[in-house]
Design a protein around this nucleic acid. Sequence first.
DNA 1: TTGAAAGGTTTAAAAATTTAAACCCTTTAA
DNA 2: TTAAAGGGTTTAAATTTTTAAACCTTTCAA
Lengths: 114, 114
Amino acid sequence: MGKLALKLFRECLPVFQTLSDPNRQDILLLLHENGPLPVNELTSKLSLSRPAVSHHLKLLLQAGLVSCEQQGTQRHYSLSLEASVTMLRELISVVEEECLPKFDTTIPAKEARL
Amino acid sequence: MGKLALKLFRECLPVFQTLSDPNRQDILLLLHENGPLPVNELTSKLSLSRPAVSHHLKLLLQAGLVSCEQQGTQRHYSLSLEASVTMLRELISVVEEECLPKFDTTIPAKEARL
DNA sequence: TTGAAAGGTTTAAAAATTTAAACCCTTTAA
DNA sequence: TTAAAGGGTTTAAATTTTTAAACCTTTCAA
């Protein structure tokens, strides 16, 4: 019952933690607007040091929100939001089913509909 | 364009921040399973001190995830997930539309369908 | 085979979060 | 009008997070 909700909330914890920082949100948006980018490109767009950007990318990687592909000396980071979005959708569905006040969805009898 | 995504990400920041802590998730689940509860009830179910619970409730209130009703000397906290869920849904919709690889939804020509 | 470019890691400091003890303010029952 | 119950706030300590400087590794071009 609420057991499923707990499981889903816990599964989404890393996503919530990762998305709860504006710099990391900005990284995601930059990757969205520019496509895959290497670390130095991101750094130049972000008023953060490279180690800081690198650190946030590590967290984003761990949470599965971005992926990384080595290309020669560069590493191109790109969005991989599919899995996380799916998890959030599931959580939201369960919350809507279990935790939200239900409104009446029954169809009124013919005579009652005007 | 990505301007909308940014706006929605930022709007959801307090929700992400609030949900990124297991104790706060637990409070939400307790309220879900038990209905509205006063602070002491929550504390007794939570291996946390009352000030800590009170603090987390304050954050949950600020993020709009719970509401509070005074009843005599007690304050009953209850879930109010509607607005947050709506915000998350919107964010997810935009992310799905803008940021996820689209799969082909066109209907193949008649001759091509077997 | 050097050297420069790209980028991860270690470290240490600064900032934010989390927590509980101590304290204070209401409300209500005696 | 006290006393006790319920609960916020303040404070200070502990922990975690964030950041950048210094350092190290790998790749590739000269």
